[in-house]
C-alpha cells in the first residue's frame, strides 16, 4: 500500500536533492543542449533535418539521465548510512522506486525540453503539438533498456568507478548510435558496429516519428531484447547487493 503523502515527499526530496548538485543538474540538463549547439545546429538547414537532429539530441539527453541518475546515484548511495536509515523508515521499496523514477522523469523532461526549445527558437525546427505528443512518449518508453543498464552499472560498480564507467558507456554509445551525427557520416568501423548498439535503435524509433515514416518494429524488437538482457543483469546486481548488505 502506497501513501500518496509519503510518495509526494519522496519525489520532492529525490528531485531537489539532485537539482541542488550543480554538477548533476548542469551536466544532465545543459550539456545535451550545448552539444546540440556545437554539433547539431550547424547541419539542420531544413525543417526536417533540423527536427531529426533535435530528436537525436533529445535521445542523447535521455540516455544521459538514465545512466547517471540510476547508475551513479545507486552506486554512490546503495551502502550509505542514509540509505540504510531510509530503509528503516516505514516506507516500502515500491514507493522509493516510484519516487526515483519520477525524479528521473523530471530531469529527462527538463533536458529534452531545453533541447526542443533551443532547436525551435535558435534552429529551424518547428515541432507541432502532435509531433511532440508522439515523440516524447516514444523517447520515454524507449529509454527503459537504458534505465535498466543504469541500474546494472549502479549495482555492479563501486562508488568511485561508477561515474567514469557510465561516461565510458554513454559517450561511445551515443556516437555509435548516430545521435551526434547521422549514421552514414560515421567512420567505417563505427558504421559497421552501429546497427548492433541499442542507442542506434533508440534513434531509429525517434527519427521515424519525426520523418513520419512507419513504426520501425525491428528497432523496437532490438530495444526489447536489450531491455530483457539488462533487466536480468540489473536484477542479478540488485540481488547480490541485497545479499551483501541486507541479508
Amino acid at each position: 500500500m502506497m501513501s500518496t503523502a509519503v510518495l509526494r515527499k519522496h519525489i520532492w526530496i529525490d528531485t531537489i536533492e539532485l537539482i541542488r548538485v550543480p554538477m548533476y543538474s548542469v551536466s544532465t540538463i545543459v550539456f545535451p543542449t550545448l552539444l546540440y549547439l556545437m554539433f547539431g545546429l550547424p547541419y539542420g538547414h531544413t525543417t526536417e533535418s533540423a527536427q531529426i537532429i533535435m530528436a537525436s539530441f533529445c535521445a542523447y539527453a535521455v540516455i544521459g539521465v538514465t545512466l547517471f541518475q540510476f547508475g551513479v546515484s545507486i552506486a554512490t548511495t546503495r551502502d550509505s548510512p542514509w540509505e540504510q536509515y531510509l530503509r528503516i523508515l516505514p516506507v516500502g521499496p515500491a514507493t522509493r522506486l516510484t519516487a526515483q523514477v519520477s525524479a528521473a522523469l523530471f530531469f529527462a523532461s527538463a533536458s529534452v525540453g531545453v533541447v526542443i526549445l533551443t532547436a525551435t527558437f535558435v534552429g529551424h525546427a518547428h515541432p507541432d503539438f502532435m509531433l511532440l505528443a508522439k515523440l516524447i512518449p516514444t523517447l520515454l518508453l524507449g529509454s527503459i533498456p537504458f534505465a535498466l543498464l543504469g541500474i546494472t552499472i549502479g549495482y555492479s560498480c563501486g562508488r568511485r568507478s561508477a561515474l567514469p564507467i557510465a561516461n565510458l558507456i554513454y559517450l561511445p554509445l551515443s556516437l555509435a548510435g548516430g545521435l551526434w551525427m547521422p549514421p552514414d557520416a560515421l567512420p567505417k568501423f563505427i558504421r559497421m558496429l552501429s546497427p548492433f548498439v541499442p542507442s542506434r535503435h533508440y534513434g531509429e524509433v525517434a527519427w521515424a516519428i519525426v520523418r513520419g515514416t512507419p513504426t520501425p518494429w525491428a528497432s523496437w524488437l532490438w530495444l526489447i531484447g536489450y531491455g530483457l538482457v539488462f533487466a536480468v543483469t540489473a536484477y542479478v546486481g540488485y540481488r547480490r547487493d541485497e545479499g551483501r548488505n541486507y541479508a
Binding site: 503523502a5 509519503v6 515527499k9 519522496h10 526530496i13 531537489i16 536533492e17 541542488r20 548538485v21 550509505s80 548510512p81 542514509w82 540504510q84 536509515y85 528503516i88 523508515l89 516505514p90 516506507v91
Partner: peptide
C-alpha cells in the same frame, strides 16, 4: 530510529529532513 553513523544528504535542509521523516508517521 537514530542511525549510528549519519551522513545526511548535504544538500537537504534541516527542516526538510525532519519533515521527510515526519511524513511517514
Amino acid at each position: 530510529v537514530t542511525p549510528q553513523n549519519v551522513d545526511f544528504p548535504p544538500m537537504l535542509g534541516v527542516t526538510e529532513i525532519i519533515d521527510l521523516v515526519r511524513a511517514h508517521y
